[in-house]
Every structure is written in structure tokens, then in C-alpha cells.
Computed example of a mutant assay.
Amino acid sequence: MSPTLIELRSASVRFGAKTALAGVDLAVRRGERIALVGANGSGKSTLLRAAHGLVPLAEGERIVGDGSTRVAMVFQRPFMLRLSLLANIELGLLLQGVPRALRRERALHSLQRVGLAAEARRNARVLSAGQQQRAALARAWTLAPDVLLLDEPTASLDPTAKREVESLIAEFAAQGMTVLMSSHNLGQVKRLANRVLYLEHGRVLADVSTEEFFGGPLPAEAALFLKGELPWT
């Protein structure tokens, strides 16, 4: 079995009186492509943030590999500084302690990788939504993470931009990068994931292979979700 890179044990997250995550157990193993699915408010984004360590756990624990596991996250709406695209990429390398002589080379290489080398000197904030999402992937990829966390990576993108971003994610995964992503796009889940977690009210109700999720028996709530019959709550 592949080594575990991130593990959550009985993890709970609360925001005031609201429980956003309740007793979640999750082991993310090297090479996996895991999709988190569920209705809005089910806890997908909170689970991603808990896996990254961006939100404190009210209960449970988070364990990260052997201490050297590198984790990067791309948010649904990537934040770009009012700087050139190249400077936005270089900043992450600066914070990682990469020497100046190597930062420019690695940043340019990452932009070339995602097809944005020609935009390197442009203000990152004037790029289209699809370009910004690709830039955010470049910024994450250049840090050479072991685990890439993606929160709705193609939300609000047009079909062409979605295909471009999906292609990049698939390429990174094919090279051995572990991916944990949330998505409302079930077609995207079929294309990119090999494991699916279904969440409802902050709890994981199903944790199965992609083939089982779309073709096997599921808990009643997950089956209703697949049919588009999840009731309003």
C-alpha cells in the first residue's frame, strides 16, 4: 500500500455554534486522485482546509507524512497580487527559500508548462478567470508539492478553460502528484478521480472507488445525490 501523506483522525471543525466537519477520518495516500462531492455546505471546502492545516481542529488530529510532505492549495477564486504574473509565481518560491538565481528560471518554466509564458509580464489581475486558474496551478506546481489540494478548480469557467485546467490536473496526477479536490461536476469526477468521498452535513457518508460510486450500491443519501434528488434542508 502506498504511504499515507496526510491523515485526519476523528477530525471536527466548528465555526462558533456551527459544526462544519464532524468526526472525519481520512487517509490520503501517495498517487491517489480523490474527489470530494456533496451539496453546498456539506463540508467539502472545510475538509480541504483541514487537510492543509488552514483551520484549527476542535477535536481529532491531523498527521502529515514524515514531516517533509509538501502541500499546496489552489482556491476556487485564486488570489493574485497586483504584480506581474511572473512576480506572483516567484513570490511563492521566495517564501520557500529558493535562491534568487533559480526563482526566475523555475517561475518561467512553470508558466511555460501551463501555456502562459507570453503573459509573464502582464498584471496578473487583468488575466481572464481561466488564465488566473492556470496561473494558480502553475504557482502551486512550481513549489513541487507532494499533495495538491483543489477547491472547485473549474467553477465558473467556460468549457474551453475547463478543459485546459482539467488537462493540467490530469497531467500533474500522471506524473505522480497526489490530488485531493472538491467538485460539483460529476463528469469531471469520473474523468479525474480514482476515489470519491461523499459528504453531508460535515460527515463522510461514503468513501469508495470512483467505479463503485457511479456503479455500485451506496448509502441512500449518496444515491439520492447522484440522482439529483437530494432534498432541500
Rank of each mutant, 00 (worst) to 15 (best):
P3D: 05
R9K: 08
S12M: 05
S12H: 06
R14D: 04
F15E: 00
F15M: 00
K18N: 10
K18P: 00
T19A: 09
A22C: 14
V24Y: 10
D25W: 14
D25G: 08
L26N: 00
A27L: 10
A27N: 08
V28S: 06
V28W: 10
V28G: 11
R29H: 02
R30I: 03
I34L: 13
I34N: 10
V37T: 09
V37R: 02
G41S: 04
S42I: 04
G43M: 00
K44F: 09
S45C: 11
T46C: 06
L47P: 02
L48P: 03
A50Q: 07
H52V: 08
R62Y: 15
V64M: 05
G65D: 11
D66I: 02
S68R: 14
T69P: 10
M73F: 00
F79Y: 14
M80W: 07
M80I: 12
R82A: 15
L85E: 05
L85T: 05
L86G: 08
A87D: 15
I89Q: 00
L91C: 12
G92S: 05
G92E: 10
L95S: 08
V98K: 04
P99W: 01
A101F: 05
A107S: 04
L108N: 06
S110A: 15
L111A: 09
Q112E: 15
V114P: 08
G115D: 04
L116G: 10
A117N: 03
E119W: 01
E119V: 00
R122K: 15
N123K: 01
R125S: 09
R125W: 07
R125L: 13
L127V: 12
G130L: 12
R134S: 08
L137V: 03
R139H: 03
T142A: 13
A144S: 13
D151F: 03
E152H: 07
P153K: 13
A155R: 11
S156D: 12
D158I: 11
T160C: 09
A161T: 09
K162Q: 13
R163T: 13
E164M: 02
F172A: 03
T178D: 01
S182R: 07
N185Q: 08
Q188K: 00
Q188I: 00
Q188R: 01
A193I: 04
R195Q: 13
L199R: 04
E200Y: 01
S209R: 12
S209D: 06
E212D: 14
F213S: 03
G215V: 11
P217E: 14
P219C: 00
A220E: 15
A223P: 02
F225C: 07
F225M: 08
K227F: 04
E229T: 01
T233M: 06
